[in-house]
Amino acid sequence: MTDDIRSERSQLMASLAQQIKRLAAAADTCVFTVHAPNNPDNPPILTETYDREKLSSGQGLPVRLDFHGIGVWYICYRDGDTFTARHILLKILDGQIVHQETGTFEGFWEDWPRYTSESRWLHSSVIETRPSHPSQVKVA
């Protein structure tokens, strides 16, 4: 890998981390999970939860992009009995992003914990993953 590619990858990762932090700064809560790369049906191998106080502090959300697997940030904005959540999914294998996805979801606040723990969309999304770059296609 050339130095130019390393530099571009580093800049991309820094930009992604900055945007995730920006979105989380105004959130009421944020949950970060990491799933095994080939088995999203199992429970996450890591779960971190952050409240409004931590998210709005000067340090903000600590964004890690050094994992191997499927990382998901659930960024939640509460409005009374309802919420709007943004999810950001990155599948990182050997330091390379091989799949990414974002989306939003709205629901009742009482269902928020179930949304982050069940993640039905996660399972179907990752199972249906196609390579995002031609160089990631394996030829027999």
Rank of each mutant, 00 (worst) to 15 (best):
Y115G: 00
E101C: 02
L23P: 00
D41E: 15
E118D: 15
A36I: 10
K91M: 14
W73P: 12
D94A: 10
L93Y: 02
Q59G: 00
V31L: 09
L89I: 14
P40S: 00
Q59A: 12
P37R: 14
W112I: 11
P37T: 05
A27I: 06
N42Q: 09
A85F: 14
G95A: 07
V63S: 03
T102S: 09
T29G: 15
V31E: 13
P40F: 00
A27W: 07
V34C: 14
I75N: 02
A27R: 04
F32E: 08
R52D: 07
T82H: 08
G95K: 07
P37G: 02
D41W: 12
N38T: 13
P113I: 05
C76H: 03
D28R: 01
P44L: 15
G69H: 04
C76G: 02
F83V: 02
T102V: 14
R64C: 05
T47C: 03
P40V: 11
V98T: 12
A26G: 04
W73M: 07
Y50R: 12
Y115L: 10
H68Q: 14
F32P: 07
T84S: 11
S117E: 15
D28E: 05
Q59Y: 12
V31M: 10
G60A: 05
F108K: 11
Q59F: 12
N39D: 11
K54N: 04
T116D: 03
S119Y: 01
S57Y: 13
H35K: 03
I45P: 06
K21N: 11
V34E: 13
E53P: 00
V72M: 01
E48W: 06
T49W: 00
S57Q: 10
I45K: 11
R114H: 08
F32A: 05
F105C: 06
G58H: 12
G60T: 06
K91S: 15
H68A: 15
D28I: 06
C30I: 01
Q96V: 10
R114E: 12
H87T: 14
V72P: 06
C30Y: 02
I88Q: 01
K91G: 01
Y50M: 05
A25L: 02
A26W: 03
K91F: 11
L46A: 09
S117K: 07
G60Y: 08
P37L: 04
Q59K: 13
P37M: 08
H99F: 13
P44I: 01
L61I: 08
P113V: 06
D51W: 00
G71Y: 04
H68V: 08
D66N: 12
Q59M: 07
E48I: 00
F67V: 05
T82D: 04
R22P: 01
L46W: 15
A85K: 10
I75V: 14
D94K: 05
Q59N: 14
K54W: 01
I92N: 07
V98K: 11
T82F: 08
I97R: 10
G103Y: 05
V98H: 01
E106R: 15
L23H: 06
F83G: 02
G107L: 00
P40Q: 00
K54V: 03
P62W: 13
Y74M: 06
T84I: 14
